[in-house]
């Protein structure tokens, strides 16, 4: 009745490759994945177009700092929330519905599993993030009113701003996975994610200005990454990017270390 009539593949693949294939099937077999990414894409393009349509030509004394590329990427603030929450759910969703037990039965090594989740989700969000950033840039540029200087993708710093904004989405997605692995609980993990991206930088920025606030992800995204012209008192583009990568590495590293010692 249960005899294996299908020949087993002769080549054995490494646990990481098997785990990554599993995570890829799991990610695309949930409708919520497609809906969330669609929301990210539509939301970012819409915010970018509306922001650009309302962007006015700068006065003569402001012309030097005028950076419409930063305006067009304003939707990153929205997109990061969706991508980050989906990243949290990639991990915590498994614990809340019990599927983690069949997942761990297949891939007992929890670090391999977390690495596979991060690799698959990070790649998907990187592709989506870069695509949506580029599309948003061109759609938003087309929405600029007559007489407003149009940024070109070849202008200094513009392509960097667009690509780093796209990569930022992926980094927040990975942050979500790391926080999810640390906390394993959807509500608390989302609370931490929103706290780090929205609440804390606003509060701290209001109290002490950019000194500390500039190190928070959303501030880095808006003032360091998505800028063609560097902003005073903020981290430089690549510095900001490096700091974010450090956050992601630290969170994922901690997430990989902890669960090995906990019951599933």
């Amino acid at each position: 009745m249960t005899t294996l009539t299908v020949p087993a593949p002769t080549r054995r693949s490494a646990p990481f490759a098997r785990a990554a294939r599993m995570e890829w099937i799991k990610l695309r077999s949930l409708r919520s994945t497609a809906w969330a990414l669609l929301l990210t894409v539509a939301g970012m393009i819409a915010v970018g177009v509306v922001t650009m349509a309302n962007t006015k030509a700068p006065s003569a004394d402001r012309a030097a700092q005028f950076d419409p590329t930063n305006n067009v990427l304003a939707g990153v603030a929205l997109g990061q929330l969706v991508v980050g929450v989906l990243g949290v759910l990639v991990v915590t969703g498994e614990y809340s519905c019990g599927s983690i037990r069949s997942t761990l039965a297949a891939i007992p090594d929890r670090r391999t599993l977390l690495a596979a989740k991060a690799a698959v989700y990070g790649t998907v969000t990187l592709v989506v993030g870069e695509a949506v950033a580029l599309v948003t840039f061109f759609a938003g540029r087309a929405a600029l009113a007559e007489g407003v200087p149009r940024p070109g993708i070849g202008d200094p710093g513009v392509l960097r701003a667009v690509l780093l904004a796209g990569a930022y989405l992926s980094l927040v997605g990975l942050l979500g996975i790391g926080i999810g692995a640390l906390l394993r609980h959807t509500a608390s993990a989302i609370a931490v994610l929103v706290g780090v991206t929205f609440v804390l930088p606003a509060v701290i920025g209001g109290l002490s200005g950019p000194t500390v606030a500039k190190f928070f992800p959303t501030m880095i995204a808006g003032n360091s990454l998505a800028v063609a012209k560097p902003v005073a008192d903020m981290l430089a583009p690549w510095t900001g990017f490096a700091v974010l990568c450090l956050y992601v590495a630290a969170t994922l590293g901690a997430g990989a270390r902890l669960p090995a010692h906990r019951d599933a």
Partner: peptide
């Protein structure tokens, strides 16, 4: 219940098959 409610039985088993190098 050790599966995600939003996933079909086929997708759930396909994911496990991929993880286990099972045809």
């Amino acid at each position: 219940r050790t599966f995600h409610p939003g996933r079909s039985a086929r997708a759930h088993l396909s994911a496990l098959a991929a993880a286990g190098d099972i045809h």
